[in-house]
Amino acid sequence: MRDNKLKYILVLPAIIVVFATAVWPLIESLRLSFTVGRLTKPNFPQGYLGWENYTWAFMEEPAFWNSVEVTVLYTLITVILTTLIALGLAMLLAPGGRLRGGVQTLLILPFAMSPALIGVSFRFMFNPEFGLFDAFFGVVIPPLAEISWLSDPTLAFVVCVMADVWGWIPFLTLVLIGGLASIPQDTIEAAQVDGASSWRVFKDITLPQLVPVLAVVLILKAIFSLKTFDQIYMLTNGGPGTATQTLSHYIYFSGMKYGQIGYSASVAWVMVIPMILLTFLYARYVFQKR
């Protein structure tokens, strides 16, 4: 068989699978968002609805706006915190050696842990009666033991952020260590000989050369923060009230719990748009590399 035919035959199955499992549902969601109406309205289902589902979300549902707010805040905080801590940790661990290498290996563990399980373990640790947090800090700072973490809207959000940061730091750290390793060592040594202090070496030489990797890390983390679901579901299930209800969680609830398929499809599409932007940013970095 000639190569120029074979090469398309080889990609065909993969393209079919990707279309069937990702592209089709994406388009089908869009169709649902324009055609499947509310359960509570008469003559359901009806044909083309226009923007009805969208205007409903934007105009009539404070819960939608609440979840937008939660998601944006959650994304901002987790992206910044995770990246900063991971950068610090990467700088600490990058030199290698036995201790540092060992800790690098340990970092793989949290990352192989299912996010749902991370949610569970944090719920466990912050349990007000017998969580680890109380056991540990309650002894040192007694007032802390009194706090019922997951029933307070702000603190529940804080715990969600902690769980997210805990789960993602290892991965970002490992990526950044890879990025640091790709910086030519002699540029750093040249700066040391040129007279730069450790801080200036970092600021003038290391950081600027790390920017491409840092950008990828930021974009990736933003994408994954935006779609957070598993942890939240297991940790607070969006509560107390809707204090930690992210967009994904809101979509799940309105679609599955309340059966508003068309409506949740439209909210889902609202969420897809920033994703597409971020993805293209990411793709640009990936392809720029070659």
Partner: peptide, 19 residues
């Protein structure tokens, strides 16, 4: 790029039509 992009589509979006 398309293959890459599908990686980032939120699971909730994909799952509705499948459901």
């Amino acid at each position: 790029v398309m293959i890459l992009a599908t990686q980032f589509v939120p699971a909730v979006v994909i799952i509705l039509p499948f459901f």
